[in-house]
Design a protein around this nucleic acid. Structure first.
Lengths: 112, 112
DNA sequence: CCAATCGATCGACGAATGTCAATATATGCT
DNA sequence: AGCATATATTGACATTCGTCGATCGATTGG
């Protein structure tokens, strides 16, 4: 489950620029896969739209309508994809989005 | 398999703007899910990076390294998500990307 | 018409995924 | 130390997904 976040070499070159090689496609697929579930998208939007730009895991369970283990699992998927970071402070886990990673995906989807 | 492409109401409001509601999350997840597979990403990049901006299905099978039914399936997923269009001309099927749909996803990923 | 070709659909199968209850781990409080 | 709380991990299960071989439908050329 814990996956190392590799750095995309051909970072930011749009899909219109060339055919993705296998490695590149694999890595991008991991990131898009993290966004490919409604529950995770809602969790991500909770973190991203938070005024403080960070959210405690304890504030995600009830609004998401999922069990605590399920939320923990989904957040791990987002962390593994590099889209959010997790910081443990005392008993609590705090999440933040990683804007550079969203930018990377935006660049990939950019028009030619 | 054939899914109607609904139009996103809250189109283009970024993830940083508010918490996605269920319907919105479902629809966005469908689009991201279409991008969440390496084979499909490569197929999409083949279409998107084509000089003529369109590609015949017959030119996708061999380079993708998948069987003809598998390619057809993947292209259907992309079409159903609204990311590409399929036009049947004679015996051949021609695919084009839908830039507006990529723009929509880029807008969703835009920073606050 | 018949044969050939292109692409979509069907059926099957193993692999991956989303989910939760139960349990484990870690931290803080008294 | 002992207990309560917050989160992660494990194990199980049903569902979805990616894949291919076989087949079907449509179009074209002789």
């Amino acid at each position: 489950m814990t996956k190392t976040i590799r750095v995309l070499e051909a970072c930011c070159r749009p899909v219109t620029a060339r055919v993705f090689d296998q490695t590149e496609a694999d890595e991008l697929a991991t990131m898009f896969k993290a966004l490919a579930d409604p529950a995770r998208l809602r969790l991500l939007s909770m973190v991203a739209s938070s005024p403080e730009r960070e959210v405690c895991a304890c504030d995600l369970v009830e609004p998401s309508g999922r069990s605590q283990p399920t939320v923990s699992h989904h957040m791990s998927v987002l962390v593994d994809a590099g889209l959010v970071t997790r910081e443990k402070r005392g008993k609590w886990a705090w999440y933040r989005v990683v804007p550079e990673r969203l930018d990377l995906l935006r660049a990939v989807l950019a028009p030619g």
